[in-house]
Structure formats: structure tokens, C-alpha cells
């Protein structure tokens, strides 16, 4: 374990009956970084998180949080971490301020309720009940509730699931603010673009295992073909005719307008001239062209052979 690491996990295993939820997971999270665990539903993200938080016992493996063992010293660990559970609610008949004050009373160290509400932009709703808030506001509130003890490590389980794009952006800003305050953030998500937007490093999980772990940038660069060239042509063409040297894969991308092709390439600089001259040879008229860098979505596809879907 490196002195910088606030969370370390070794050989974690957990099964529920016949289902192996977590199958030998290990990683370390450095102080101050935002660490993402991404993967489809059922990949074992939540179970992994809940074992680290001390909510569940692993069948085997070792966990250390802030130099403490969450199984043996759960109360001490819980004093110093903040947790937002996936889809958890709060009390129906207490106001936002009252809920934060109540949760604050469970900790040695506490942040004033109004200051927390200010931070998540709900100061003027201090006297409201939770059911009077929108989905995005409720999610922001649960972030505030995860901060009542001024935690060093914050765990966020699927913080933006079910939110509209605008509410999601506003939540992203809050997560970035936590990072800028020097907190270590560990979050799970099944949105790859969320992991790319927020995380310093990402562990990609599938079937209870970590299949890759690095920065989003490095994960994408490691792909055989980290760039996509998208072409829209005036007429249809056989995909293999576009497979010039350096093109790893050609796919017909379906959209309403038609004749859209996606070429996965290793290097744009090498492949682009070849693609353009092939089009000229074929006498194809180019309607539109764009170049994109591959995403974590593609990384997941390349690693698991599966599409990642909501």
C-alpha cells in the first residue's frame, strides 16, 4: 500500500447463493482523486462499494479505508466517510434542514445544515419536505446528506441515474467541487461519458471482475483503433470497399438519413488520405465527414464484446 492510498482492496469475493457478485476484485484509490467503477447493471459495482463502506461482509479478501479495517472498526471508518446510496430516500415528515441536523447528530464532526444546503443550491428550500423537490434537487440533497460529517472519502452509488441531462450536469459540478475541496470521491456509474467527465481513473467491471483500470485517456489510447472517422455518402457502398490499410473495422451506422459509415482507425493522419482517395476511386460523393476520438463505451465493447446499455 502506498502512503497516498486512502482505500485499498485485495482479492475481494462475495457470492449470493449461486451468483458470484464480486469475483476477486482488487484496486487502490489515491488521496484526492475521483475514482470511478463503471460497468453494466449487475457487474458487482454496488456490492464492491458496500463492502468497502462496511455495510456487507466479504466472503474473502481484504479492505482498508483510511488505514482502518471497515469490518473490525466500522464505527471509526463511518465517522470519516460519506455515503450516498443508490436509490435511498430520507424521512417524509422532516424538513431538509431537520434531516441534515439529525444525520449530523450521529457524527463527532458536523457541518452546519444551512452551509450544506448552500453548497448544493438548496438553501432557500431549507424548510421544504423532500417530496416537494424535483428529482434532481432530491439527488443534490442526498449529496449534501453525504457531506454532513465533512468526510475525507465520499462514496456515490449511481449518483445521476434517472436524471435529465441538465440535472446531471449540475450534479457533475458538485462532484467536481468535492474533488477541488481535496476529498477523495469513489463513484459508480453505468454512464461511460459520466466516468470520462468526472474520473481521474476508472475501473471497468464486468461479471464481478475488473477488466481494466486506468485513466479514461489511457484506456482509450490503448485501443487498437482509438479514432472513428464518420462518413456520410450520397450513395450506398459495400462496407468492405472502405477498408483501406489502417482501418480496423467498418460499420454501417444506422440513422434516419442513411449511408452513414463509421471507420475505426489507428491513426487519423495515416488513414484519412487513403480513405479520401478510395472514395475518389469509387466515384463516391462525400456529403459529410467527422472525426471523433473513441470513448470508454468503445473500450468496454472492445474488452467485453458487449454493448453497454442503460
Amino acid at each position: 500500500m502506498c502512503a497516498q492510498d486512502v482505500v485499498t482492496v485485495h482479492g475481494l469475493r462475495k457470492r449470493y447463493g449461486d451468483i458470484v457478485a464480486v469475483d476477486g476484485v482488487g484496486f487502490a484509490v489515491r488521496r484526492g482523486e475521483t475514482f470511478g467503477i463503471v460497468g453494466p447493471n449487475g457487474a458487482g459495482k454496488t456490492t464492491t462499494l458496500e463492502i468497502i463502506e462496511g455495510l456487507r461482509q466479504p466472503d474473502s479478501g481484504r479492505v482498508e479505508v483510511l488505514g482502518l479495517d471497515p469490518q473490525r472498526q466500522p464505527a471509526e471508518v463511518k465517522q470519516r466517510i460519506g455515503v450516498q446510496l443508490q436509490a435511498s430516500a430520507y424521512f417524509d415528515f422532516l424538513t431538509l434542514k431537520e434531516i441534515l441536523e439529525l444525520f449530523g447528530s450521529f457524527y463527532r464532526r458536523r457541518v452546519p445544515a444551512l452551509q450544506l444546503l448552500e453548497m448544493v443550491g438548496l438553501r432557500d428550500r431549507a424548510g421544504a419536505l423532500l417530496k416537494q423537490l424535483s428529482g434532481g434537487q432530491q439527488q443534490r440533497f442526498s449529496l449534501a446528506a453525504a457531506m454532513v460529517n465533512d468526510p475525507e472519502v465520499v462514496f456515490l452509488d449511481e449518483p445521476t441515474t434517472g436524471l435529465d441531462p441538465q440535472a446531471r450536469r449540475s450534479l457533475w459540478d458538485l462532484v467536481r467541487e468535492m474533488r477541488s475541496q481535496g476529498r477523495t470521491v469513489i463513484l459508480t456509474t453505468h454512464y461511460m461519458e459520466e466516468a470520462e467527465a468526472l474520473c481521474d481513473r476508472v475501473a471497468i467491471m464486468d461479471g464481478g471482475r475488473i477488466v481494466a483500470l486506468d485513466s479514461p485517456e489511457a484506456l482509450v489510447s490503448r485501443l487498437e483503433a482509438p479514432y472513428h472517422i464518420r462518413l456520410r455518402l450520397a450513395q450506398p457502398v459495400e462496407p468492405h470497399q472502405l477498408a483501406v490499410p489502417g482501418v480496423v473495422n467498418v460499420a454501417c451506422a444506422a440513422d434516419g438519413l442513411g449511408n452513414l459509415y463509421r471507420l475505426q482507425v489507428n491513426s487519423v493522419a495515416e488513414s484519412m488520405p487513403l480513405v479520401l482517395s478510395r472514395l475518389a476511386e469509387l466515384g463516391m460523393e462525400l456529403v459529410d465527414l467527422s472525426v471523433e476520438r473513441a470513448t470508454l463505451e468503445d473500450v468496454f465493447l472492445a474488452l467485453t464484446g458487449k454493448e453497454l446499455r442503460d
Binding site: E53, L55, A75, K78, Q79, I81, V83, L85, S88, A89, Y90, F91, F103, F106, Y107, R108
Partner: peptide, 9 residues
Amino acid sequence: ILRRIQTTP
């Protein structure tokens, strides 16, 4: 809510 309480000391 019980799980959420469990995350606190």
C-alpha cells in the same frame, strides 16, 4: 433508510 442509517456511526 435503514441501510442509509447503517452507513453512519
